[in-house]
Amino acid sequence: MNFYHYAAPATFYPLAGKLWPWFAAIAALLGLIGLYIGFVVAPTDAQQGEVYRVIFIHVPAAWMSMFIYLVMAGYCALGLAFKTRLSAMMASALAPTGAMFTFVALWTGALWGKPTWGTWWAWDARMTSELILLFLYLGFIALQSAIEDPRRADRAGAVLALVGVVNIPIIYFSVKWWNTLHQGASVSLTAAPKMAETMLWGMLIMALAAWAYAIAMSLLRVRAIIIERERQTEWLVEALEAER
């Protein structure tokens, strides 16, 4: 398979159109199964009761929030190095989904924290890093939307994402160090309840669902970006005619 063949918007547009419904279907199906396991099958936790069930959403969202930023930075590096337009478009398409997962992770974390620790927010290293990650996502989106010229927007966003990806570990370790020095919140996230096998399965399936959802959404969004950018080209006019 020729990589460059699919790196052209003209060939990727119909491919993405064919693929995204499948990923959306997989996401819906796995999501339903995962939620069923998480909220019905999995046993009630001895210490935390029913509250803990939010981790079936929280943990996959937190995983995806970090993973998507890495993928985004990877696409950005490709786009800067080889000037492939599609990889820059993929990065822009992934950013809102990444920001959404980051927000969900923070939100569900707060929902879990209130009954468990008695507070919505603690300056825990992971939560703080996640919050900064959200700011990085929003900065990326804001920068790209502030630049009119799409080529400059792509490339400026790419530099920002790469600077961000270098900084994320530094930010994480600095926050962690700061946290251990202060012994602030007397809660510990690592003291998670012992995982029953069903819980692990539920979480895994939910993570796969989140993954499929992210792919489906980014494919859908990249199609929208392609339409916006290439609207005057012949192939797109033909493709849109054919879809009608």
Binding site: I132, F135, G139, A146, V163, I171
Partner: peptide, 11 residues
């Protein structure tokens, strides 16, 4: 925009 981009990196 500058504030939004730069401040998180300053952490």
């Amino acid at each position: 925009l500058l504030a939004l981009l730069v401040l998180p990196l300053y952490v």
